[in-house]
C-alpha cells in the first residue's frame, strides 16, 4: 500500500446561509437571491474548482457544531441519511442528506490520537443526527457528495480548561490525523469548519439575504480577521498559533472550537502562503474560504 497523504487543507466555514443562498435541491427553503453573501459564494466556487482538479478519496471535517465534553468523538457508522434542521436557523436550513462515512479511517485517527494521550471515542449509534456544520462544509466544498467523509467532533478543552490547553490538544489531534491518513494509503482533503471572528447579530432582517443588513459586527472583529488573513497569506502559521489565544478572546473567534489549529497541526504548521479564495460576513461573523496545498515538506 502506498503512503497516504493530505492533498489539501481548507478553511471551510459553515454558515447555513451559504447553502440557503445556493438553493440546492436538497434544501427545502428557497432564497431571494439578494446576494448578501456573494463574496463567500464566489470563494467556495473557487475552492470547488480547485478540489475538482485533485484526486482524493475522503473529506475529513472538524466541526464545531458537534460539541463534546468527554474528549473528541468520530462518526463510526458507515452511512447516515435523513433531514438536517438547523436548530439556530431552521428558517434557512432543512437539508436532506445522504452520506457515507470512512469508518476505517476514523478508527485509525481515533487510535492515533489515543496513542498521543487524547480522550477519544467512536460514535456507533445509528440514530445519531449528523450536525449541520459537517453537512454545510462538505456540501459547500464538494457538492457532488461522491466522497466518503470522516467527521470529528469539537472537544471542549478550550472552554473546560484554557485556550492554551485546548490548543495543545488540537495540534496533537491534527498530527494524529496526518499520521492516520499516511498509514491508510488514502488521499484526503481536510476541512476546518470554522468562522474567524464570531460575534453574531441577534436579530435578522425580513429577507435574511438582504445585503443592506450584512456587515461585520464591529471594527474590532474585522481588524482581527484582516490580521489573521494577512498571516495566512504570508505563510506565518506559527504566528497564528502564537496569537490564537488572544484572537479567540478578543474576537470571540470560533477558532475556540479548535478546527483551525487542528488543520494547522495536520499540515505541520505551514510556512508557505495559502490561497484566500474569499472573505465575507454572515450575520456579523467573519468568514474566509482558504486552501493550503498539502503538509509542509
Amino acid at each position: 500500500m502506498s503512503k497516504g497523504e493530505i492533498v489539501s487543507g481548507c478553511i471551510a466555514p459553515h454558515p447555513p446561509h451559504l447553502v440557503y443562498a445556493a438553493n440546492p435541491p436538497q434544501n427545502e427553503p428557497r432564497s431571494s437571491g439578494a446576494g448578501a453573501w456573494q463574496a463567500l459564494h464566489d470563494g467556495y466556487q473557487k475552492l470547488q474548482k480547485s478540489l475538482d482538479s485533485k484526486d482524493f478519496d475522503v473529506l475529513i471535517v472538524h466541526t464545531p457544531h458537534w460539541k463534546t465534553r468527554v474528549g473528541h468523538h468520530l462518526l463510526g457508522v458507515p452511512q447516515f441519511s435523513g433531514l438536517s434542521v438547523d436548530p439556530i436557523f431552521p428558517n434557512l436550513f432543512r437539508f436532506n442528506f445522504d452520506l457515507e462515512v470512512d469508518v476505517e479511517l476514523a478508527e485509525k485517527i481515533c487510535s492515533a490520537a489515543q496513542q498521543r494521550g487524547l480522550e477519544m471515542h467512536m460514535m456507533r449509534n445509528p440514530d445519531f443526527r449528523v450536525d449541520y456544520g459537517t453537512i454545510t462544509s462538505c456540501h459547500l466544498a464538494h457538492p457532488q457528495w461522491d466522497k466518503q467523509i470522516v467527521c470529528i467532533s469539537s472537544g471542549s478543552t478550550h472552554s473546560d480548561y484554557s485556550n492554551e490547553s485546548g490548543e495543545l490538544e488540537m495540534l496533537a489531534l491534527g498530527e494524529a490525523t496526518r499520521e492516520a491518513v499516511e498509514k491508510s494509503g488514502k488521499r484526503a482533503v481536510l476541512l476546518a469548519s470554522t468562522s474567524l471572528s464570531h460575534r453574531h447579530f441577534t436579530s435578522e432582517p425580513a429577507d435574511p439575504e438582504d445585503p443592506e443588513h450584512e456587515y461585520i459586527y464591529n471594527s474590532n472583529q474585522s481588524a482581527w480577521d484582516e490580521h489573521v488573513l494577512g498571516l495566512i497569506r504570508d505563510g506565518k502559521c506559527q504566528q497564528i498559533l502564537d496569537e490564537m489565544p488572544d484572537f479567540i478572546e478578543q474576537s470571540i473567534s470560533e477558532c475556540k472550537e479548535g478546527a483551525l489549529t487542528w488543520l494547522l497541526g495536520a499540515l505541520g504548521v505551514p510556512d508557505y502562503p495559502a490561497k484566500v479564495y474569499g472573505y465575507g460576513t454572515v450575520i456579523g461573523t467573519g468568514n474566509a474560504v482558504v486552501e493550503w496545498r498539502g503538509p509542509k515538506q
Binding site: H73, H121, R124, S153
Partner: peptide, 13 residues
C-alpha cells in the same frame, strides 16, 4: 423524532 446526545450516544436513543 429521536434524539441522540452528542456526548452520551452510547446510552441509547
Amino acid at each position: 423524532w429521536s434524539k441522540v446526545d452528542d456526548d452520551f450516544h452510547d446510552l441509547g436513543t
